[in-house]
Computed example of a mutant assay.
Amino acid sequence: MTMGVFKAAAVQMRSGTSPERNAADMEILVRQAAGQGATYVQTPEMTGALVRDKEAGAAAFTTEDRDVVVATARRLAKELGIYLHVGSTAIRRADGKLANRAFLFSPDGSLIAGYDKIHMFDVDLDNGESWRESASYEPGTEAAVTDINGTRLGFAVCYDLRFPQLFRAEAMAGAEVLTVPAAFTRQTGEAHWHVLLRARAIENGAYVIAAAQGGLHEDGRETYGHSLIVDPWGRIIAEAAHNEPGVIVAEIDPAQSLAARRKIPNLRNARDFTVNAGASEAPRLRGAAS
């Protein structure tokens, strides 16, 4: 059963290199969002810290049970009675490797879902920027869909946005709201951010909520900002039309996802097919990842 209309917020941040300062900044913005009536609040990718230097990152990042952002989010969720989604933060795993991990806390402060970013941002951009996320982080291997009071929520982080099969799989698993907390670079954001988020909403008949990092960061990188909330018909219903820290809020009506999927029933109409690539055994594909 789908829950009724609720307010969702996307928190836009400009995380620096100190997890403690970032946790304090997050708290201010989350309280602002809750004060505007949001019962689901999402923060951006790498809420805890954006640290490009490996040695500095090694000093800043710790295990889940000792992480200040995780502890702060758990406390705030319970105090404010909200679903608080930490878009991601760097977590040191038991094997010593880092995960780019999202957390969703319930209104009683319990952890109800987590997700490790699957697709690593390993790119070389025209402006000379070069990123090798896989050099520092271990990719996740499982998609995640969870329930918040009857509404199904699917998880992704930043670069995952460019892999539509992830979102289709989550939609096929019942997700009516797809989440994409991010730290898009300014260059790629200007070119692709809006169109990719709207496409994921349209092709899956789902809301998309994307909290973003924005501006020039302490470690020298520049992110695009422009946090967005998109409805299942692809309309932008809230946007931070800048790169400054702040909060956007919009009403989410899960019934609109069902309505969009009735109009354009592409999830139901997806068919198996094969690709004739001249090989003796072409791979078998389908509309949703399996």
Results as ranks from 00 to 15, higher is better:
Leu153Gly: 01
Ile82Gln: 05
Thr179Glu: 02
Leu111Arg: 10
Val145Asn: 00
Leu161Met: 14
Ala156Phe: 05
Arg186Val: 04
Leu104Arg: 09
Ser106Gln: 10
Ala113Pro: 04
Ser134Asn: 14
Arg132Gln: 10
Val86Tyr: 06
Ala135Ile: 11
Ala169Gly: 06
Ala144Asn: 08
Gly87Tyr: 10
Ala113Leu: 04
Ala94Arg: 11
Asn100Thr: 06
Thr188Tyr: 00
Val145Arg: 00
Ser106Asp: 15
Ala169Phe: 01
Pro164Ser: 10
Lys117Phe: 02
Phe155Glu: 00
Ala90Leu: 08
Ser110Lys: 15
Ala183Leu: 13
Asn149Gly: 05
Ala94Gln: 11
Leu98Ile: 05
Leu196Asn: 01
Leu166His: 08
Ala90Trp: 00
Asp126Ser: 13
Leu80Trp: 03
Thr146His: 11
Tyr83Val: 13
Gly87Ser: 11
Ser134Ala: 14
Tyr115Gly: 01
Val86Trp: 07
Leu153Gln: 04
Tyr137Thr: 06
Tyr137Arg: 05
Ser88Ala: 15
Ile118Lys: 13
Gln165Met: 15
Ala191Asp: 05
Asn149Asp: 14
Leu111Glu: 13
Asp126Pro: 05
Thr179Gln: 02
Leu197Trp: 02
Ser110Gln: 13
Met120Asn: 05
Arg93Phe: 00
Ser106Phe: 09
Met172Gly: 08
Pro164Gln: 09
Val157Lys: 03
Gln165Asn: 14
Leu111Ser: 09
Asp122Gly: 09
Ala156Asn: 13
Leu197Glu: 04
Ala156Ser: 15
Arg101Trp: 06
Arg168Cys: 06
Leu178Lys: 05
Gly128Cys: 09
Asn100Ile: 11
Val177His: 00
Gly154Ile: 10
Lys117Gln: 14
Val195Ser: 15
Ser134Trp: 06
Ala175Glu: 06
Phe155His: 06
Glu138Asn: 13
Val123Cys: 10
Ser110Arg: 15
Pro139Ile: 12
Glu190Trp: 00
Lys117Trp: 01
Tyr83Glu: 10
Arg162Val: 04
Tyr159Ala: 01
Val86Cys: 06
Gly96Pro: 08
Asp116Val: 13
Ala183Ser: 13
Phe105Ala: 00
Glu170Asn: 08
Leu125Asn: 02
Pro181Phe: 10
Ala169Tyr: 04
Ser88Pro: 03
Gly81Ser: 11
Ala135Gln: 15
Cys158Ile: 03
Leu153Trp: 15
Asp116Cys: 13
Arg152Cys: 00
Glu142Thr: 14
Ala102Thr: 07
Glu129Arg: 03
Gly81Lys: 10
Leu84Glu: 02
Gly96Leu: 07
Val123Gln: 07
Gly150Ser: 11
Arg168Tyr: 11
Glu129Met: 11
Glu176Gln: 14
